[in-house]
Write a protein that binds this DNA or RNA. Sequence first.
DNA 1: GCGAAATTGAATTTCAATTTCAATTATTAA
DNA 2: TTAATAATTGAAATTGAAATTCAATTTCGC
Lengths: 152, 152
Amino acid sequence: MREEEDIFVEFLRKKNLRLTPQREKILQVFLKTNQHLTVEELYNLIKKRNSDIGQATVFRTLKLLCAAGIAKEVELGDKKIRFEHKYGHPHHDHLVCIECGRFIEVVDVNIEKLQNALCEKFEFLPKRHKLEIFGVCKKCRAISDREGNVFA
Amino acid sequence: MREEEDIFVEFLRKKNLRLTPQREKILQVFLKTNQHLTVEELYNLIKKRNSDIGQATVFRTLKLLCAAGIAKEVELGDKKIRFEHKYGHPHHDHLVCIECGRFIEVVDVNIEKLQNALCEKFEFLPKRHKLEIFGVCKKCRAISDREGNVFA
DNA sequence: GCGAAATTGAATTTCAATTTCAATTATTAA
DNA sequence: TTAATAATTGAAATTGAAATTCAATTTCGC
């Protein structure tokens, strides 16, 4: 929390930008949730909590947070841009449940190694990658079982 | 070519839909390109070639082709929906060049195996996945070298 | 305090995706 | 063949999220 704020302040300073109450608030609320929210969802969350900050400001601040390395854009199947924490939150992939929408963050160094080997084979210089596995999570599988889903 | 057309005809028949000249044309042009085109790009291609088919029809036909298992939606970084061939074109991942936009289609059974193992660990039932590696392709790396790109 | 620069947020614009709807075309039943 | 029925088309309109505009406001440096 504190650390992210420091990074943000430093980032803003370098760019001759200002840490405003709105930006501070948006960062706080953003950091407090571990979900992957869209601009609109974060905007609604902030409005509910108390503050009255415009959607444009939320939008712009999230972009700033990305530029500062604190947030990161992701898309999880639906066609909306979502934002996740980046700082202190190293690279990972997602197992996305197509029933409940929840996701599991995973890393597998062996997969990453094979990916790099694959790139090498094509003399392709990898910069970043995105792996999403869509399926049914443990919890939803249990529900299907209980309900005797004939398709499962 | 012929095969895809047969599949499409059969698909349409089952759904009580019709094979119109427009749909036939769209399928032909779609199959002739190996790129991953957006609706608009395919629409422009068709217009250039000769025909005068509306964008709505291209859009709807591509959706039909997806439903028929002939086409498949993909997104490659930019935020547009693109369509690739699906029939006779088994699952694969993409190495996407961030310089020239070209992509390489790849498969690595070992990666897939590790993915399945990973899912098992979380009791997650995988249905499909999407792996995209963004980086610089061989050709573009050569260009950077030639130009003495100090950042490369 | 003053002026320059940055910020805000409501409203607007953008842009691709999608839908509407009236006109057209094809199919079916009589 | 014709009339009724159903599907198709495409121009135009709509949608919805992303991004921008701009006048009003706030903040900063002096």
